[in-house]
């Protein structure tokens, strides 16, 4: 395991948040690349487990970055991965808030949204495949993933019930 360079971790997360248009799932592949593939700080399975734990916790889904930082280096690690996510929100967001009162007709906003949405979707698909490869080792795992997709698309059940069902299936040895 490499030694953890907290300032490098901080700067990497900071840079990621500025391109994270579309939310926290779009930077997941790069965080996986950084902590699992390049620096070998976590295994792929640990990464997926930490992501999942944060989905079960209350609060925004982005909290998986805090948990990764904490797991790597305690409180300092949690600070190194969490503080960067406040930076774009507290700078760009407020700047744009001022801009939009001065230039009420700029069509650039729509172009940005139309341009970036497909990229966001491609990146989220990359996140989903990385998680699937990290946790699914045989056909029964992929089957449960597919069943989850079908249930989510056809019902409006709370995802927590599905996660609970997954935990149960795991404990019964189905996966």
């Amino acid at each position: 395991m490499d030694r953890i360079d907290l300032s490098a971790l901080f700067l990497h997360f900071l840079a990621l948040w500025f391109v994270a248009v579309g939310g926290p799932s779009t930077i997941l592949p790069d965080i996986h690349r950084y902590v699992v593939e390049v620096h070998h700080l976590l295994t792929s399975a640990q990464f997926a487990e930490i992501y999942t734990l944060a989905q079960v916790a209350p609060g925004p889904n982005v909290m998986y970055v805090t948990l990764i930082g904490w797991h790597l280096a305690g409180w300092k690690g949690a600070a190194a991965t969490t503080i960067p996510l406040l930076v774009p929100a507290s700078t760009l967001t407020l700047l744009v808030g001022h801009f939009n009162e001065r230039h009420p007709n700029a069509p650039i906003g729509r172009a940005i949204r139309r341009g970036l949405t497909p990229i966001t979707i491609g990146l989220m698909l990359a996140s989903a495949t990385i998680l699937m490869r990290a946790v699914n080792h045989d056909w029964s795992g992929y089957l449960i993933t597919l069943i989850t997709v079908a249930v989510v698309l056809r019902t409006s059940w709370n995802p927590l019930w599905l996660l609970a069902a997954g935990a149960l299936a795991g404990m019964l040895g189905l996966v």
Partner: peptide, 14 residues
């Protein structure tokens, strides 16, 4: 349990 939940979490994202 975590493995089962992670498989579901991947499905939720997909």
């Amino acid at each position: 349990a975590l493995a089962g939940m992670s498989i579901v979490a991947a499905g939720l994202l997909l």
